Amino acid sequence: MNSNNRGHFPFVNSSSSSESSDEFDEWLGYENEAMEIEEQIAINMIARNNYVIHQLLLIQQSDQEATMAESPVQMNLVPTEATSESFAEYGQVIEASSDGDLFGPNDAQLDLSRGTPRFYIMRLEGRTLGFSTITHHANVTQCLGSIGGHVWYLGVAKPSLIEDVDRERVGDNVESGSDGHLYAPPTVEEVRVFRFSGPKFVKLNRGTWHAGPLFSDSSMDFYNLELSNTNEVDHTTHSFKKKNGVIFRFEDSTSSS
């Protein structure tokens, strides 16, 4: 080999094969390090682009929700009298039974197994015959009744806990509730209003969406059976005004007794 060609090939050195091997290993290390850096840069760029897109979508969604909340559409509902038959998809309507009757299907089928039961009287004031939010409790069958048998109303939508519905029907429209449970948001089309009067109370199935109690009097007392921490850890709310651009109104069909 012509001595003038020495050094043109960094990994062929007739004087020392071990030095050539060391130089090659060093070069390979630099190449691998450069490739790792380039790969990490590419990953970071993809992540950054995804983040920017996500933020833009959040801003767009926020703008849409703000627009709907500023000028919501009013939906006028006609109350339905609450009976065992008409309210069956949402829970039970419990009326008076004879003393001595044994427990049966007409009694409230309660689920109070997920905590300490709480039975109390709640005083509500300044309610109107309309609503824009609706709530559900995933861990308890709540019972409500007016003390004195006065007329009152309840807005409802069917339970939509993921465990209670067909996942194919729900699709990707899934959200997480107050305690981490999964549910499908209620739709505007399925909202109903029921009228309660006389000596009866309502048992809401677990997960039934409800707005109220609502009434035209200045104040009203209700007995309420739920769990001791229902309002703290099991209170999931959907805003129709914010999410759907809709509010609901209805008229008092009769004067309270």
Results as ranks from 00 to 15, higher is better:
residue 170 V to A: 12
residue 166 D to S: 05
residue 156 V to Y: 09
residue 132 S to N: 14
residue 127 R to P: 04
residue 193 V to N: 03
residue 174 V to I: 15
residue 136 H to M: 11
residue 197 S to C: 13
residue 187 T to P: 06
residue 214 L to T: 05
residue 182 L to V: 09
residue 210 H to S: 02
residue 176 S to G: 03
residue 192 R to Y: 11
residue 214 L to K: 00
residue 186 P to Y: 00
residue 209 W to F: 15
residue 152 W to R: 02
residue 165 V to H: 00
residue 153 Y to I: 04
residue 190 E to K: 00
residue 176 S to K: 14
residue 208 T to H: 04
residue 170 V to F: 02
residue 185 P to Y: 01
residue 144 L to Q: 08
residue 156 V to W: 08
residue 155 G to K: 01
residue 196 F to V: 06
residue 135 T to I: 08
residue 205 N to D: 13
residue 143 C to W: 07
residue 151 V to C: 10
residue 137 H to M: 05
residue 200 K to M: 15
residue 169 R to T: 12
residue 214 L to V: 04
residue 137 H to A: 01
residue 202 V to F: 11
residue 213 P to H: 00
residue 143 C to Y: 06
residue 194 F to G: 00
residue 193 V to D: 05
residue 151 V to P: 03
residue 145 G to Y: 12
residue 151 V to N: 09
residue 150 H to G: 14
residue 167 R to S: 12
residue 213 P to V: 03
residue 209 W to I: 01
residue 147 I to M: 13
residue 129 L to Y: 06
residue 155 G to E: 06
residue 212 G to N: 02
residue 208 T to K: 02
residue 194 F to H: 01
residue 173 N to W: 09
residue 216 S to Y: 05
residue 179 D to V: 04
residue 215 F to N: 04
residue 199 P to D: 14
residue 192 R to M: 13
residue 180 G to F: 09
residue 149 G to I: 10
residue 204 L to R: 01
residue 136 H to C: 05
residue 147 I to P: 08
residue 152 W to M: 03
residue 123 R to A: 09
residue 186 P to M: 00
residue 184 A to G: 04
residue 182 L to E: 15
residue 141 T to M: 04
residue 184 A to S: 14
residue 141 T to P: 08
residue 211 A to P: 10
residue 213 P to I: 03
residue 193 V to E: 07
residue 164 D to K: 13
residue 129 L to D: 11
residue 177 G to M: 11
residue 186 P to E: 00
residue 155 G to N: 03
residue 155 G to V: 06
residue 177 G to N: 10
residue 130 G to W: 10
residue 134 I to Q: 08
residue 188 V to T: 15
residue 133 T to G: 02
residue 146 S to K: 05
residue 198 G to D: 11
residue 152 W to P: 04
residue 211 A to N: 08
residue 196 F to M: 13
residue 126 G to T: 08
residue 198 G to V: 04
residue 199 P to L: 02
residue 124 L to N: 13
residue 210 H to E: 05
residue 146 S to T: 08
residue 169 R to S: 13
residue 134 I to G: 01
residue 176 S to T: 15
residue 174 V to D: 06
residue 166 D to F: 01
residue 151 V to T: 15
residue 176 S to H: 12
residue 146 S to A: 15
residue 145 G to N: 10
residue 197 S to N: 12
residue 132 S to R: 14
residue 207 G to P: 06
residue 200 K to H: 02
